[in-house]
Design a protein around this nucleic acid. Structure first.
Lengths: 346, 346
DNA sequence: TAATTGCCCGGGAGCGTTGCCGGGGATAAA
DNA sequence: TTTATCCCCGGCAACGCTCCCGGGCAATTA
């Protein structure tokens, strides 16, 4: 009764082990009646084949993995669901793996590939620069999603699905500049030299520089040394610091909606009205931005579409139906209540 | 070079296969020098033992799983992180598995247990009634977390870590009643007969009945037939329905913070002030409640503590250091800006 | 009738690892 | 010197499954 194997099923059915195997994997070399009989016994005994044993022998185990950096991010829930759906459609199993905040993703991926026999990896979030040599070692296709940069110089050894964070960030900064703001504080994430936050900071600087506005380091606030750099708590803390510093500003660009929400709270507590006294812009396009008061002006990333494309691309590459690609998704600036013209607020 | 095995390492070291195995699993029967030499070769070749093969032979594979129902819930991110940390401490691997919105969790669990060789399962979220016979079939300890009911009648065949949702919901309703509200609308989730939402609805009814207030079905709104029943979108839609119905009410109790946020938005758009015109209460104690404007009155569940306890309990049961338990965690009513005395608002 | 074909089926090797068993060499005890 | 002891080590049988090979039997063809 305890831990029954394919051998037990074979005995119970009075057939050979191979026959049971054939029934399970619906191999053609078996008569319909035998299969039915075997399947019946399997069902009533509740037998489930041991996956380790299967994977040991089989070459074509259909399994892919999603690595997520920072599972706290609400961003990823829906993405995982979408990827899961795509995988199911092609009968792929999905293993979800969380990686720590920094650095070891490739190592984890390597382990995963060796340990299980997976056919491909999706990486959600994280830094945008990767060592092609390391990735090549994996020997399975690797697709990044939501990492904010698309390089297309070298030989493509992995895929990258992303919005152009630098450009979008520049777009948002320009929008604020167009509203007349000149003293724009930015709340960004500075956990790594090649993080998304740095990229968005670059975009911000690009916009200012293009207009000939000098970059004031006193307006730049970076989240550092915290477990979750995209939290409301961090946004709140940094906005408070900004307020306490006494530096002059008329707008705040938070490079994540959560940071923006935290900043709003701090501003609110300091008696600043949004957008009358200060404009606040976010980035991500989370639902919360739509329901928050005031509704957040933000950059909406087409997360669902990106996740779907990511999964499809990976599966296609595995099937040999596609090569690695760098795909840039367009993001949309959605103008809502939290921003307004300087000096002429509604 | 491609797909190297323990045999390759053995050859490269000039030792037997068993010796390599001993080095890997730091078995005592190996000399320190040999171990060091083998480990060196392993490191420089980048060899990683095949997990399927290991699990096939080994009885004591240290692996547990977390099943999560509704990965969209931001609630779970931190919980997973905490569980992961606890598992790591005891050198357990963690597999994360997402299960669909309804029903099949036990089946998925069964597959998981057979396929991998896991030693225990944690279940996050979901309904609170389970078939003990089915669970017993798993043959591995099962611990539920955040399911709102603690039964202690029958033989304990699984563990349950939860707050008493019904009682807490009753507490919140009483709080609103104490503020003078009599016409309290409730936005709840009605996706299943034994769902958390139903339990919280019971608590609401308990409170009203205890005060001799008749339950008005026109004040009860249930989220149904949506993928994510705890979304802001759902809260918004239901609050809108409530407003459109023209029925009289002075408070809204949303049984999830997200629903409350959505409801606030709808109320706001209808020109209702919170809490001056209508009080709104949530449930869960999510961060967003603290940063939302107005800050949400809510029931705060000690999620971190619960998750930690859940992991520890499971691990202890696996080690034979504990038996199954039903543990009820106290929740806290946090009074914030979104609720106020009826007719005497601040 | 004899030979050929094709359908089902069972046997058995092996997947990469672990763990037991037994052996060889060095050291300690007699 | 002989015997016992201990430390390392290699060989080998599993673990539960898949997949290839070959064989039996009925149906088809010569």
């Amino acid at each position: 009764m305890d831990e029954l194997t394919i051998k037990d099923i074979a005995r119970k059915c009075g057939v050979g082990i191979s026959t049971v195997s054939r029934a399970i994997n619906n191999h053609p070399d078996i008569s319909p009646e035998t299969r039915k009989m075997v399947m019946e016994v399997i069902k009533e005994t509740g037998f489930i084949p041991n996956n380790s044993a299967r994977n040991l022998k089989r070459v074509d185990a259909k399994c892919i993995a999603v690595l997520i950096k920072g599972i706290t991010n609400p961003f990823f829930g829906p993405a995982i669901q979408i990827i899961e759906k795509q995988a199911q459609k092609k009968k792929y199993a999905l293993v979800i793996q969380h990686v720590d905040a920094y650095g070891n993703e490739l190592e984890v991926a390597l382990h995963l590939v060796k340990e299980k026999r997976l056919r491909g990896i999706i990486f959600l979030g994280g830094s945008y620069q990767h060592d092609p040599v390391q990735i090549a070692k994996l020997k399975v296709p690797f697709v990044f999603c939501t990492i904010g940069k698309v390089k297309d110089t070298e030989e493509k050894v992995y895929s990258n699905i992303a919005v152009d964070d630098r450009a979008e960030s520049c777009k948002m900064t320009n929008y604020l500049l167009d509203l007349g703001h000149k003293r724009i504080a930015i709340i960004t994430e500075g956990t790594g030299a090649e993080s998304v936050g740095q990229l968005r900071l670059e975009g911000y600087k690009d916009a200012l520089t293009a207009r000939g506005i000098e970059i004031d380091e006193k307006l730049i606030y970076e989240v550092k040394d915290v477990e979750d750099p995209y939290s409301m708590e961090s946004g709140y803390a940094l906005a408070k610091k900004l307020l306490d510093s006494g530096v002059d500003f008329t707008a705040v660009f938070a490079i994540a909606d959560f940071l923006a929400v935290g900043a709003c709270r701090a501003l609110h507590e300091a008696g600043k009205r949004i957008p009358e006294d200060v404009s606040v812009a976010g980035y991500d396009g989370l639902d919360i931005g739509e329901y928050y008061t005031p509704q957040l002006t933000t950059i909406r990333q087409p997360m669902e579409a990106m996740a779907e494309r990511t999964a499809q691309l990976l599966l296609d590459i595995i099937d040999g139906k596609s090569k690695h690609e760098y795909i840039s998704f367009p993001a949309e600036l959605v103008e809502r209540e939290s921003t307004a013209k300087l000096g002429n607020q509604d």
